[in-house]
Amino acid sequence: MIAWSGTTDVADTYSFFAVLSLRYALPAHGSGNVEDAVSCGHAALTAMGMLDQNVAGAGFLPEEQRLQRISLSGATTGLWDTSVRVGQERFRAVLSRLHR
């Protein structure tokens, strides 16, 4: 039996949100299921809100909200490249919070 010890450190917390987002993104992409897409978006917004609370001067939540609005609008030109860029920024922000 595996005992749950809880999510306690930075890497565990943000890994949890990354996996949770993927858990909903993959089925949403394959099926177009709206509930999965909404759950994926919610997980991403929650993670970015938490990251904003823990990184001084960060503005990840408003950026995620903006990207989700663009995605819903259908005007997605350049969205992939922008998403890759902001994803790299977010990853660097999480890495900066890890204890070395």
Rank of each mutant, 00 (worst) to 15 (best):
V55C: 03
H29T: 08
G32T: 12
Q53Y: 01
G57Y: 05
S83V: 10
G74A: 08
R92D: 14
L61S: 04
Q53M: 03
Y14S: 09
M1C: 13
V34W: 05
L79M: 04
D52P: 02
V38I: 15
R90M: 11
A56L: 01
D12A: 13
D52T: 00
L22D: 14
Q88M: 10
V55P: 01
A93E: 10
D52H: 00
G78W: 07
D52I: 00
T76C: 11
G41M: 08
T82Y: 04
Q88P: 04
T13Y: 04
N54K: 02
S96V: 10
G74Y: 13
F17P: 00
S5N: 13
V94Q: 10
Y24N: 13
V19M: 02
A47R: 07
E89L: 11
F16V: 07
L51F: 02
G6D: 14
W4D: 15
V94W: 08
V84Q: 05
H99T: 15
L61Y: 00
A75V: 09
Q88H: 07
M1Q: 09
A25Y: 05
G30T: 00
G87S: 05
W4A: 15
G30D: 06
G49L: 00
D81Y: 04
A25R: 11
A47V: 08
C40R: 11
R100P: 14
M1N: 10
T13Q: 10
H29E: 10
Y14M: 06
V10E: 11
A37M: 14
V86T: 14
L95S: 14
P27N: 04
Q88Y: 02
F17N: 07
N54P: 01
P27T: 03
S73K: 07
A28K: 05
A75K: 13
G6R: 11
A37W: 13
G59T: 01
V19S: 05
L72R: 06
S96I: 09
D9I: 13
A43Q: 08
T13H: 09
S73T: 03
E89M: 09
R23T: 05
D9W: 13
P27C: 06
L51W: 04
A56T: 03
V10H: 06
F60V: 01
A58N: 04
V94Y: 09
V34P: 06
A47W: 02
V38M: 15
L79W: 09
L26R: 06
A28Y: 06
E89P: 02
W4P: 15
G6H: 13
A37H: 10
Y24R: 08
S39M: 15
F60K: 00
G6S: 12
S96W: 07
F60R: 00
I2A: 15
W80L: 08
L51Y: 01
A93G: 09
D12K: 07
R23C: 04
S5E: 11
A44L: 12
S15G: 08
N54Q: 03
V55Q: 00
D9E: 15
A3W: 05
A3G: 09
G41I: 14
Q88G: 11
S71N: 08
Y14F: 14
T13M: 05
L22W: 03
Q88D: 12
F16R: 01
T13F: 03
L61F: 00
W80G: 01
C40H: 08
A58P: 06
V34T: 14
Q53A: 06
Q68N: 01
P27M: 07
V38C: 06
I2H: 13
S39H: 14
R85P: 03
Q88K: 13
